[in-house]
Design a protein around this nucleic acid. Structure first.
Lengths: 192, 192
DNA sequence: GTCTATAATCAGATAGAC
DNA sequence: GTCTATCTGATTATAGAC
């Protein structure tokens, strides 16, 4: 829908407080009253916009295929898939971070719950690797997860900061996925 | 100054658009007109507030002592120091990220320039390690820097999201510094 | 330097015609 | 469903007394 697209684009750049109903209406080339007709009020519009964003990323993450093999192989595959999804949906991920930052009360809880589940899955995979002897015994899985989340998520956040958006070519995505997975997994494995 | 402290605290939670002059005046327990007297207008206030924040972090980063030893040892020391600074000034760092996100035009350029210099220093250290044979020859230093920046910076951003602020005890800081440095350096070193 | 108005603007939201 | 007109409240900012 044009209204949600316009709201998304403006919210990404300006946040909810910085974006007016009229800006959105102009960008979507509709009358501003149509927004009230569909969404009730400004909060309702952003709720719908964020829900769409969360579903989009949630679906992609849920569809990441569970690989076979050793914990090390599965982790490598998991991380590189995650980087691919993150770069492909960088804009959407920025929006979700922004929403968390702006402290959208009840919405935040939903995304946080999702993040915790996701983090727990990675943590379990790491613990498995520690028990199998693949990974270092001195690792704290929780800390390792925190590092990984940062490494991956910051790619989306940094895109307009450190990296020029244009510079993310398809081949770059693939190389970044491989690089990140390699770096992280090597950081975990037990010294031979 | 009380006004800048209040502005900082409110900006961190609500952003510039979400924070009113009166909220700041009330929090600082001064008359709202005093803010115009000192800073001219709202933009001037936030400019002064951000400048103070940038100087604070900039000074801490500039004072990080340059260690001696192999690239590997220096990098370890550099990363663990950086994590310490980041966790100690997490709140200030969040503010700078928030300012970049909100797109404060000329301010953004300043912080970006600083980040680029910082990134170049790390990149040079990694290149040195590659040449000396300490680090993997297949590494792209630019990508490695991106991963490191994410791993470190996200600690500050995630504090209110993934990690409960209270949970960052002093000993945690030290362990997180060691963990991050260890993880990153191990990810870089050449297989034996 | 600090206060009390108050002007000027802007944004969210509603009413009601078509 | 879509438009114009308008209300209401909040917010930035100024004027001017003390």
């Amino acid at each position: 829908m044009r209204i949600l697209d316009a709201a998304t684009s403006l919210f990404e750049r300006q946040g909810a407080h910085g974006t007016t109903i009229r800006q959105i209406a102009d960008a979507a080339r509709v009358n501003s009253q149509l927004i009230y007709y569909y969404f009730g009020d400004k909060a309702g519009l952003f709720r719908a916009m964020l829900q769409r964003a969360a579903e989009r990323v949630g679906a992609l993450l849920a569809n990441m295929q569970r690989a076979e093999g050793t914990p090390r192989e599965r982790l490598f595959s998991f991380v590189s898939d995650w980087v691919r999804v993150t770069l492909a949906e960088a804009s959407t991920i920025r929006i979700l971070h922004r929403a968390l930052l702006e402290g959208d009360e009840n919405f935040g809880a939903e995304v946080k719950a999702y993040s915790v589940t996701h983090a727990a899955a990675i943590s379990a995979l790491i613990e498995e690797g520690i028990e199998s002897g693949d990974f270092r015994a001195d690792l704290d899985p929780r800390r390792a997860v925190a590092s990984l989340v940062g490494m991956v998520q910051y790619l989306a956040l940094a895109e307009p900061i450190l990296i020029a958006p244009k510079s993310v070519r398809p081949s770059e995505t693939e190389e970044m996925a491989k690089h990140t997975a390699e770096l992280f997994v090597r950081g975990l494995i037990a010294a031979r």
